[in-house]
């Protein structure tokens, strides 16, 4: 199936799946950090490779990008993106440090953030899999800190089969830490075949 063939009914179904996934992911993250996490309604995005910088509605900040593969009855990627300065604050919360303490990412900080990605992604995939009747297994995450544009472009060009279009189901999430608001994005990028399998499982193909 080509991305152009996707109709509103398909897009709505994918949003619904993502909604179930991200709802559970938010609950898991919320339990991990002891704060209420809010998720926005997921959006399905299909862009030409040239327009990738517009995939995430921000300038080109330095962000932490954590990429996870998933396998099983459907394959694809999850990309978790958190602006770097907000990821530092998240590490402070995770490691019970005074807010503002974390400035550099070393082994401890990186592994805490990977753990966050692991928990968020596992609950997202678990809920999505349960809804679809799929078994979905996440890989070990890989983390990098860099310009947002470099990260998202590379994820599509290097790791997806369809290199000329970018497809994702994107969920923005946020929570507040005292007066600071932390936010991030969780992208679910199914492989083309997985996209078909998901739609078939919902009787839409």
């Amino acid at each position: 199936m080509r991305l152009n063939d996707l109709k509103d009914i398909h897009l709505d179904a994918l949003k619904e799946v993502a909604n179930i996934g991200s709802g559970h992911a938010a609950t898991a993250l919320s339990q991990l950090i002891g704060k209420t996490v809010y998720v926005q309604v997921p959006e399905v995005k299909i862009l030409k490779i040239e327009d990738i910088p517009g995939l995430i509605p921000e300038d080109n900040p330095i962000v932490v990008g954590i990429l996870t593969n998933f396998f099983g009855d459907a394959t694809g990627k999850n990309l978790l993106i958190i602006p770097k300065n907000e990821a530092e604050l998240l590490v402070d919360i995770l490691l019970s440090r005074t807010p503002g303490t974390t400035k550099i990412f070393q082994e401890m900080e990186i592994s805490s953030l990977k753990e966050v990605a692991n928990i968020v992604t596992s609950s997202y995939l678990g809920a999505m899999g349960e809804f679809l009747g799929f078994l979905l297994i996440p890989s070990v995450p890989s983390l990098t800190v860099d310009e947002l544009t470099s990260i998202i472009t590379t994820v599509y060009v290097e790791f997806t089969e369809e290199k000329e279009y970018a497809f994702c189901v994107e969920t923005a999430f946020y929570f507040a830490e005292e007066d600071k608001k932390l936010h991030g994005y969780l992208l679910m990028i199914p492989d083309p075949e997985a996209l078909e399998n998901m739609l078939k499982a919902m009787n839409l193909l």
Partner: peptide, 17 residues
């Protein structure tokens, strides 16, 4: 032409970068 998330790349010489 960098190689990001290198741990996911099977054949580094054939990475797109």
């Amino acid at each position: 032409g960098s190689t990001m998330f290198a741990s996911f790349i099977k054949n580094p010489e054939e990475a797109i970068g």
